[in-house]
């Protein structure tokens, strides 16, 4: 069992990936809502269950990924290489996806790939594990996917997150998309969302 060395991937790669994708899709289509992110992979070390699910769902050898310091270790890199074949890069500006372990700092949004005016899709998506998706300071979301407003209160965002996000929103259609994961749930913050403090 070679895969044992790297931690197990999805038990059912087809069905599990589809379910995780729909959770991520629903999360981005309905910003600020929490979607159940079921996943049968335990990940590896600091790469928790939720991060592992999104990683297995979205990455393959056509993608570049950036790993936060706690993930930038042989066990996780082995997991990534064995299960996805994705290229690991050392600069979030070169990454399709940036994975951030619980406790690690998120890369500054402006330091990621923001895409171009012609190809705004060629930007980085950050997937960050946070301590909790609720219980923190309340933020108010407006924008596509939201009927009027949506309140969120994730714990563990950077101190200047609202300012960073405001700059990110200014760049629209360029910009970074963000997925927060915690406790088996995923929350999406697409670049189209406007975020203010409550």
């Amino acid at each position: 069992m070679l895969s044992h060395d790297f931690g197990a991937g999805f038990a059912d790669p087809v069905v599990d990936a589809q379910a995780a994708f729909r959770a991520v899709l629903d999360a981005l289509a309905n910003p600020g809502t929490q979607q159940k992110l079921a996943g049968s992979s335990d990940g590896s070390g600091a790469l928790g269950r939720e991060l592992a699910s999104t990683l297995l769902t979205l990455s393959d050898h056509d993608t570049t990924i950036w790993l936060s310091p706690a993930l930038d270790v042989d066990a996780v890199k082995g997991f990534v290489g064995f299960h996805t074949g994705a290229t690991i890069v050392d600069d979030p500006a070169k990454a399709n996806f940036a994975f951030v372990a619980l406790g690690d700092a998120m890369p500054e949004l402006a330091r990621c790939n923001l895409g171009s005016q012609e190809y705004p899709d060629r930007s980085t998506t950050i997937i960050a594990e946070v301590p909790d998706l609720s219980g923190g300071a309340t933020l108010v979301l407006r924008g596509p996917g939201i009927r009027e407003t949506q309140e969120i209160s994730p714990v563990g965002l950077p101190g200047d997150f609202v300012a960073q996000w405001s700059d990110n929103r200014q760049l629209f259609p360029r910009g970074v998309d963000l997925l927060l994961v915690a406790g088996g749930q995923v929350m999406g913050l697409p670049r189209s969302s406007r975020i203010v403090e409550a």
Binding site: A17, F21, V24, L25, L28, A29, T57, L58, S59, D60, D62, T63, N96, P120, D121, S123, T125, P144, G145, F172, P173, D177, P190, R191, S192
Partner: peptide
């Protein structure tokens, strides 16, 4: 996976 990645970008940039 390739199509799913495209769909997620499409949702994040409505109409693009």
């Amino acid at each position: 996976r390739m199509i799913r990645r495209a769909i997620l970008k499409a949702v994040a940039i409505p109409g693009y």
